[in-house]
């Protein structure tokens, strides 16, 4: 298969997954009796101003059948029109645009922290000279994985904002304000990466080629840094790329704790208000991001690992592992 054909095929697969995820979420939200959008707009308990209701009713054209509605909204989604919030009447794209930069900055910093933490933990757990330290550090990822991020968030908040006063919990201090929320997110996200990295490094360290490197007289630091790390981190690299979706999902809790107005907070509110168009848009956004990143990793894989050719990668690879944030 030529490179071009392979790329085309993978892009087609990615589009298929995005479309299916849209369809699936639509099905989940609309499968129950009643129409969530109609119920919401006409809910007598929660009256919306007439100026908001009228355009919404016109836009969502509620007399159409479910299938027709699906086709209409799908068409709009593909042209970049994600509908209107049922609560405020603001276009969803506008709403998301407001929070996106905030959350992307948070996620980027959290990703950086996750990678650094995972590297630090894994390298210590595998190479640190004292066995007792190794085994304690080795247990860290399991502890991180078992700790809900709201606990981590509150503890960090209490210690660094309230007790030590290092970071303000109210005033915006630019990058500094991102540190605690990003760290909270990173504690949850780095654990599976660290676990896979520990496994990868331990396995690579036992490979016969390490003995040969040693027998050549290559310094231990070079063996660890250039050979073992490179070989042992390939699975962790894939996993890291896949955690981006979890960073966004985890932002829901973290932004709630730290009162930051990003996609996470928008999600939290949309779910609370059962603002269906916003929830759908967020899911499709996250799913798209996941698929795009997955596609990107597939394409750069042969560069990292010469054993994997595009031909071999053409067989659809399943997502290897899944991480969770609590």
């Amino acid at each position: 298969m030529s490179r071009r054909a392979f790329v085309a095929r993978r892009i087609a697969q990615a589009v298929l997954v995005i479309w299916l995820s849209y369809t699936l979420v639509f099905a989940v939200l609309f499968v129950l009796p009643g129409n969530p959008i109609r119920d919401k707009i006409t809910n007598p308990l929660n009256p919306l101003p007439e100026s908001v209701v009228r355009p919404l009713i016109e836009y969502y054209d509620l007399d159409l059948t479910l299938v027709e509605q699906y086709l209409v909204t799908l068409g709009r989604t593909f042209t970049g029109d994600l509908g209107y919030s049922l609560v405020s009447g603001i276009p969803v794209t506008e709403l998301l645009a407001q929070g996106l930069s905030e959350t992307l900055a948070l996620a980027a910093l959290a990703l950086l922290f996750s990678v650094l933490l995972a590297l630090g933990i894994a390298l210590t757990a595998v190479f640190f000279p004292v066995a007792a330290v190794r085994s304690v550090v080795r247990a860290l990822p399991a502890v991180f994985l078992s700790t809900p991020s709201f606990l981590v968030g509150f503890v960090l908040l209490v210690v660094f904002s309230f007790q030590l006063g290092w970071v303000s919990s109210i005033r915006d201090q630019g990058l500094v304000s991102y540190v605690l929320p990003a760290l909270t997110l990173a504690i949850a996200v780095n654990a599976p990466i660290a676990q896979v990295l520990i496994q990868g490094l331990s396995r690579a360290r036992g490979e016969p080629f390490v003995t040969v490197l040693k027998a050549k007289g290559v310094p231990p630091a070079t063996i660890a840094g250039r050979h073992i790390l490179k070989n042992g981190s390939i699975p962790a690299l894939t996993l890291t790329a896949l955690t981006v979706g979890d960073l966004l999902a985890g932002a829901t809790i973290v932004e709630t704790i730290f009162n930051r107005t990003g996609i996470g907070l928008i999600t939290e509110q949309a779910v609370r208000e059962q603002d269906t168009p916003v929830v759908m848009a967020i899911v499709v956004l996250v799913s798209t991001l996941f698929v795009v990143i997955n596609l990107f990793t597939d394409l750069v894989y042969p560069v990292i690992d010469p054993r994997i050719s595009l031909r071999a990668a053409a067989a659809p690879r399943r997502v290897r592992r899944r991480v969770a944030i609590g």
């Binding site: 016969p208 080629f209 050979h227 070989n231 010469p306 054993r307």
Partner: peptide
């Protein structure tokens, strides 16, 4: 001392 290992397939860094 030069060393020749047992299993050539896994004795070189694959990357």
């Amino acid at each position: 001392v030069g060393f020749v290992p047992q299993d050539p397939l896994s004795s070189l860094d694959p990357l």
